[in-house]
């Protein structure tokens, strides 16, 4: 690497979690997904003519008028995939994901992990052609096979229905 000082060095989560869970008594280290061949497609037209989608694993849900969690994630749920209208105001979106660094930060601003407002602004300004009618959430699975064979194809299907040219992906 050799770039920057030790202070600027990023966290090695693969090593850190391996040691952490080994110390917790878990014998078999997690096997991270790894692909030799990386799929790639060039953007075919100017961004100002592109419709962008958003897919997140940050467990985002919407609150209804009375401040309760809305059920449309259930109504749209197939496997681990659900959808929420893109025009849902950011104030009504929240995440109860627990897999973030709670000692250091928070999930109080949905745009810090699911940038719906920022993307709507970019569309309003014409930097991008527009946003999809809905964005998609994927609850994380312990099974990489389920992700590959069931959930990812469902996300792709919905993105095609939405007519998007490119997609932003965000975890927490």
């Amino acid at each position: 690497m050799g770039e920057g000082s030790a202070m600027s060095d990023y966290v090695r989560y693969i090593d850190k979690t391996r040691e952490y869970y080994l110390a917790e008594g878990y014998k078999t280290p997690y096997k991270w997904a790894h692909f030799e061949d990386i799929p790639f497609a060039r953007l075919e037209k100017p961004l100002a003519q592109c419709r962008l989608g958003l897919v997140t694993t940050s467990d985002v849900a919407a609150l209804n008028e009375s401040g309760e969690r809305e059920r449309h994630d259930k109504a749209t749920l197939i496997g681990n995939v659900y959808s929420i209208p893109f025009d849902t105001p950011a104030e009504r979106l929240f995440s109860r994901n627990e897999h973030y660094d709670r000692y250091t930060t928070n999930l109080d601003d949905v745009n810090s992990y699911c940038p719906v407002t920022r993307m709507r602004e970019l569309a309003a300004e014409g930097r991008i052609g527009g946003v999809a009618p809905r964005f998609h959430g994927v609850y994380t699975s312990y099974s990489q096979r389920v992700t590959m064979e069931r959930d990812a194809p469902e996300v792709l299907k919905r993105c095609r229905e939405d007519g998007v040219d490119a997609v932003l992906l965000t975890p927490v």
Binding site: S8, Y10, I14, W32, A33, H34, F35, E36, I38, P39, F40, A41, H99, Y100, D101, R102, T104, T105, N106, L107, D108, D109, N111, S112, Y113, C114, P115, R118, T170, P171, V172
Partner: peptide, 21 residues
Amino acid sequence: YVGVPRFVFTDFPLGNPCGRP
């Protein structure tokens, strides 16, 4: 390690990949 076509990395704690709240 996974391997993706395009990746924007921000050296922040887990939780805010799209910027500070």
